[in-house]
């Protein structure tokens, strides 16, 4: 029998990093399916524009940066949570606690309930299920949490990969049949603005945003986001992890774009502008009736894979970044894993019943979630690019970035405040898009962190890109 400490360490690694034994195949499956859920299939197709494929094409670059820049850094620093890297690189642990808390709150109050809520709603409408959205969401949550709690990251990654093969295959069949239904002609009867890849200023992705803001959103999402990045940390070696992430990047650029935009365009040609009903309507039109059970399984699996993956990341953040540091260092990880998982599951189902009653709350919360992306990325950029930074200066940058973005989202971008347009339009800058604002927030957050570090804490930060030594000895 293993001594207690050794047993604890191996429990940790099994639950949070699948014993460090995931092959590239399962890393690729887990990274791909953690991201792909019904909100993407329904929401992106609901835009009914080819342009939306840029989110996936740009994701290819985000994944390559994860593979070749971030994965070696996380492995070198022996990280289980990505926030451990921040503690190692800054002079102080406060930034790790703050960012970990933000991820944890975002997962608990927004991400977990949103995944089962949107999945349950789609299943209820499409398959005419008589049960309430909350009941369907509770069943999905029970199964999803079951995988994360009983099997840890290994079960999550294996589920993601096996389900992923079925989901991607069936989604490609939908694309093939949809194209066949319109005689492989997407261009006639579809306006040019829905087929162009060069986004105009009033489109969801203006072309200029691809060259800066979009890139940083992708870096945040794939490389400094515990929900995704944890899956790339579970391989035995850096090389195996890189192989898995590159495979996920190839899937992202070759397979995902058609499945999230083509059914939407076909829906426009067949039914006109039908918003978020597009995917369901195309599926009902092109898939034969006898496949509806199979399609329901695909949708349920897409929800389960994302829910269980985010659940596993949530349990990891609480256990490693909070419970073991502040409550009980030698806690029994298996018991804690069960308790935290069950609490998170109950909380997410309870929130679904609230969200189902007032849909605008979840939209507001999702906007709030978006507020955190660039401020969090700023803390990573300052940590990786500079030396001699105080953790409290990074927290100041984060708070400032959050405030600037909130001011934009809830005041400057509210058309009612400025006669039907954004504030930027009133000063002759109508092209300023929220992706541009994200870039502005990122640059401001880094600058505020550097200035606070210099003026308040008297530290001279030094640019030191690529050097992996810790910042100061005082951490």
């Amino acid at each position: 029998m293993l001594p207690r400490a050794a047993s604890n360490a191996s429990d940790d690694k099994e639950i949070f990093l699948a014993g460090g034994g995931l092959s590239w195949f399962f890393v690729a499956g887990a990274v791909t399916l953690t991201n792909l859920s019904t909100d993407q299939l329904v929401g992106m197709n609901g835009n009914q524009m080819l342009l939306l494929a840029w989110w996936e094409l740009a994701g290819f670059i985000g994944l390559l940066l994860l593979a070749f820049v971030f994965v070696p850094i996380y492995y070198k620093n022996n990280c289980t949570t990505i926030t451990q890297l921040l503690e190692k690189r800054y002079d102080g642990a406060s930034i790790r606690t703050v960012i970990s808390a933000l991820f944890l709150l975002g997962n608990l109050f927004i991400y977990l309930p949103a995944v089962i809520y949107s999945g349950a709603l789609f299943m209820q409408i499409l398959f005419g299920i008589e049960a309430s959205v909350t009941t369907i969401a509770a069943v999905l949550a029970l199964f999803g949490a079951g995988f994360a709690i009983l099997g840890g990251l290994r079960a999550v990654a294996v589920l993601d990969t096996y389900a992923g093969i079925g989901i991607l295959a069936l989604a490609l069949v939908v694309v093939f049949l949809a194209m066949q239904a319109i005689g492989w002609d997407m261009t006639t009867w579809v306006p040019e603005e829905r087929l162009t890849m060069i986004g105009s200023l009033d489109s969801p992705i203006p072309f200029h945003t691809l060259f800066a803001g979009m890139l940083f959103i992708q870096i945040f999402y794939w490389s400094t986001n515990q929900n995704i990045t944890q899956k790339a940390l579970a391989a035995p070696t850096v090389k195996e992890a890189q192989k898995g992430v590159v495979a996920a990047a190839i899937i992202r650029v070759l397979i995902v774009p058609p499945i999230v935009v083509i059914p939407g365009i076909v829906a426009f040609k067949l039914f006109g502008d039908v918003d978020d009903r597009a995917y369901g309507m195309v599926v009902a039109e092109v898939l034969p009736d006898w496949t509806s059970g199979m399609f329901a399984a695909m949708i349920a699996a897409a929800v389960l894979t994302t829910y269980s993956a985010v659940m596993n990341a949530t349990i990891t953040l609480w256990s490693v970044d909070f419970h073991r540091r502040f409550i009980k260092p030698d806690v029994d990880m298996r018991k804690l894993n069960r308790t935290v998982g069950i609490i998170a599951m109950i909380a997410s189902v309870a929130l679904v019943s609230i969200y189902a009653g007032a849909e605008s709350i979840i939209n507001l919360l999702q906007e709030l979630n978006g507020l955190l992306f660039m401020p969090i990325l700023s803390a990573f950029i300052a940590a990786l690019l500079f030396r001699n930074m105080d953790a409290r200066a990074a927290v100041a940058g984060l708070v400032c970035g959050f405030s600037i973005y909130a001011f934009h989202t809830f005041y400057l971008y509210v058309p009612e405040n400025f006669g039907g347009v954004s504030w930027y339009a009133t000063i002759g800058l109508p092209w300023v898009h929220y992706i541009d604002v994200m870039l502005f927030v990122l640059v401001s957050s880094v600058l505020v962190a550097l200035l606070t570090n210099l003026i308040v804490f008297g530290n001279h930060a030094r640019l030191a890109f690529g050097k992996c030594a810790p910042q100061l000895n005082g951490a």
């Binding site: 096996y162 509806s292 059970g293 329901a296 349920a300």
Partner: peptide
């Protein structure tokens, strides 16, 4: 959904669960 489709749905989900647990148990046994 017709009963046969519910059965297909349940069968596929069960198969997915069984395949996943087989792999997890095999990896733990190594």
């Amino acid at each position: 959904m017709a009963h046969i489709q519910v059965a297909v749905f349940a069968g596929l989900m069960l198969a997915l669960t069984a395949l996943t647990w087989r792999k997890v148990v095999a990896a733990r046994g190594q």
